[in-house]
């Protein structure tokens, strides 16, 4: 009994301790990531570029949650279902109601624009994904690092810049 109590007290005492040495430190690949997430646009009109960014986010079905034109920031998110309902129902019938599967997901996107000294504007975009299982528990949280996603986004943004500039 005594041992259990000592053990419990030890757990309580050490539960709050964590390693702060590596907290908020940059990882080795951060410059490489910055490169993938950044594209330079040959324009000086930051407002128009941000408008084109907002347009492309709407194209992709995002809801804008925060924006500040003076800092060149847009934050948006969208909720989507993972997989289709038929598959999920089939899984429940075959494997039972206790089956855990990825049910819904939320995508977060951050866009930041920064004017450069060469009279151009850098656009940096960051995608994050969070998902929940069918019981409402967090299933996964990940920063999207797939280079293709960022390439495709910038292609869409380039197109959006063209369309927005031409009032389409």
């Amino acid at each position: 009994m005594k041992k259990i109590i000592v053990f419990l007290i030890t757990i309580v005492l050490f539960a709050g301790c964590m390693n702060y040495k590596d907290l908020y430190t940059l990882d080795k690949n951060y410059l490489e990531r910055r490169n993938i997430e950044t594209r330079i646009f040959d324009t000086q009109n930051e407002k128009e570029l941000l408008t084109a960014c907002a347009q492309v986010l709407q194209d992709l079905g995002y809801t804008i949650k925060e924006s500040d034109i003076n800092l060149g920031v847009i934050t948006a998110e969208k909720n989507r279902e993972v997989g289709n309902k038929v598959g999920k129902v089939a899984m429940l019938i075959l494997l039972g109601s206790d089956t855990v599967y990825e049910d819904v997901q939320k995508f977060y996107v951050n866009i930041v624009t920064t004017p450069t000294k060469e009279k151009a504007i850098k656009v940096r975009v960051l995608f994050t994904r969070k998902s929940w299982d069918n019981h409402g528990n967090i299933f996964s949280v990940e920063q999207i690092t797939d280079t293709k996603v960022y390439q495709q986004f910038f292609e869409k943004l380039s197109q959006s810049v063209f369309l927005t500039t031409n009032g389409i």
Partner: peptide
């Protein structure tokens, strides 16, 4: 403004999602 923009960039480097920004 430049410091604020760099704060945002740093937070992005560290994997933060920017929820609010007010110049």
């Amino acid at each position: 403004n430049n410091v604020l923009r760099n704060v945002i960039a740093t937070m992005q480097d560290l994997g933060f999602i920017i929820e609010k920004a007010d110049e």
